[in-house]
Nucleic acid binder design. Structure first.
Lengths: 120, 120
DNA sequence: TTGACGCATTCCGATATAGGCATATGATGG
DNA sequence: CCATCATATGCCTATATCGGAATGCGTCAA
């Protein structure tokens, strides 16, 4: 097997930096393809391809406007991502080395009274 | 070019479902490789490979313990991801069809004077 | 030392990517 | 209908993946 398709979920879709940039730009409102391409320094076909991926995972939606096609953000698909990552919030706010033991030691130390110096 | 390396950043590393499961398991504390493999229904080499990726992006750390190697979570690398995705929070909480107009309104509101407090 | 165990690494094949370029499709105006 | 502008798609190459199976390597016990 190869890597999972970029269109398999939001996690894969936003793994690509350029697609993330597109999403950020779209936060400012709808934009036509060429506009996005120019702003991000990519070719029009590349932009279209990235937008296709984003559309397939539902992170953007399109709206025809004459010759143009206006792409707009639909961030709802990012919510699960945010929630999943958020599940780790309490772990990155901890001072980190040897977290598991550290936590245990802390609990004990508190019961036995302040007893410093164990690093290194 | 091919897709960016899975080891290029946390975004790419967590795009793989199995690696996400590993991280979730490690939230419960350090674990040896075989233990992870068994719990996730994958072979030991697969687990090792995924753990290698996670280590290269700094999401896990290892500690030798005799024959075993205990892998532990280091979630700090997830913080940037959480923050990036969090930048879209207000967009998925909005009723959606009027998003563009909403953005316009926001811009105007800002020019007419910081008139905060419309959250929730 | 030898054997057993835990884990990492290698080689293989199949797959899907991102990028570049050419071109097809679509809508608009004259 | 035709020319033009805006996008989408197709084709190609190089690359890195995930999975599987085999094997290398380090540690521990007898």
């Amino acid at each position: 097997m190869a890597r999972a398709a970029t269109t398999s979920d939001a996690f894969n879709a936003i793994a690509e930096p350029q697609r993330r940039e597109i999403l950020v730009l779209l936060r400012g409102g709808e934009r036509p393809v060429t506009d996005l391409a120019r702003n991000l320094g990519m070719t029009q076909p590349q932009a279209s391809k990235h937008l296709r991926v984003l559309r397939e995972v539902g992170l953007v939606r399109v709206r025809g406007a004459g010759k143009q096609r206006l792409y707009g953000l639909d961030a709802r698909g990012l919510r699960p991502v945010h929630e999943w990552v958020g599940g780790f919030e309490r772990f990155w706010s901890e001072s980190f080395d040897r977290l598991d033991e550290y936590v245990q030691e802390l609990k004990q130390a508190r019961q036995e009274g302040p007893h410093d110096g164990d690093d290194q």
